[in-house]
Computed example of a mutant assay.
Amino acid sequence: VGKKRVRRVMKANGIKADYRQPRRNRKQAQADYEASNLLKRRFTQSKPNHVWVTDTTELTYGSGNKVRLHVMLDLYGQAPIAYLISPTETTQSAVKLLSLAIEQRQQ
């Protein structure tokens, strides 16, 4: 007896096989942290060192290699204060960028 014959007889008699449902890998939604809007879209500042902002960009080079470029800006002159290139986006990278910016401004 072949598979097709068994399938045909089962279908004719309304018999259905009971089989285990495949597991689906679902990730739980991660909680997002949203800070309050302190600037309220006022991106031009009247004093230096009053407001600093930071941004991280992922750059791809070669055959799929990636690095993160972290930049700290002073909104007064809208020029970069400090930058850092790191392989991953971590808290340590952000803290190191802040310490580099403070060092640059104290000189």
Rank of each mutant, 00 (worst) to 15 (best):
V67D: 00
P87F: 00
R7T: 04
T91I: 13
L39I: 08
Y61R: 04
M10Y: 04
G64C: 08
A31E: 13
L59E: 04
P87M: 07
L59D: 01
K3I: 10
I15L: 14
S63F: 01
S63A: 14
P87D: 14
G64H: 03
A12L: 03
L73E: 11
Q45L: 11
G2D: 15
Q28H: 07
D32L: 07
G64M: 01
A17D: 05
T90W: 01
V51C: 13
V1H: 02
S93V: 05
A29Y: 06
D55G: 14
L75S: 15
N49H: 14
K40W: 01
K96Y: 05
G2E: 11
A82Q: 12
T57S: 14
V67T: 01
A79I: 06
Q45C: 11
S63W: 06
S93F: 04
K96I: 07
E58S: 10
R42V: 09
R24A: 08
R8L: 06
Y33E: 07
I15S: 03
K66C: 00
D55K: 05
K96M: 10
T88M: 03
V6D: 02
A79S: 08
R26C: 06
L97M: 10
T60N: 13
T60D: 11
Y83E: 12
Q107L: 12
T57A: 10
H50R: 12
D74L: 14
S63P: 03
Q30K: 14
K96A: 07
A101G: 09
A94H: 09
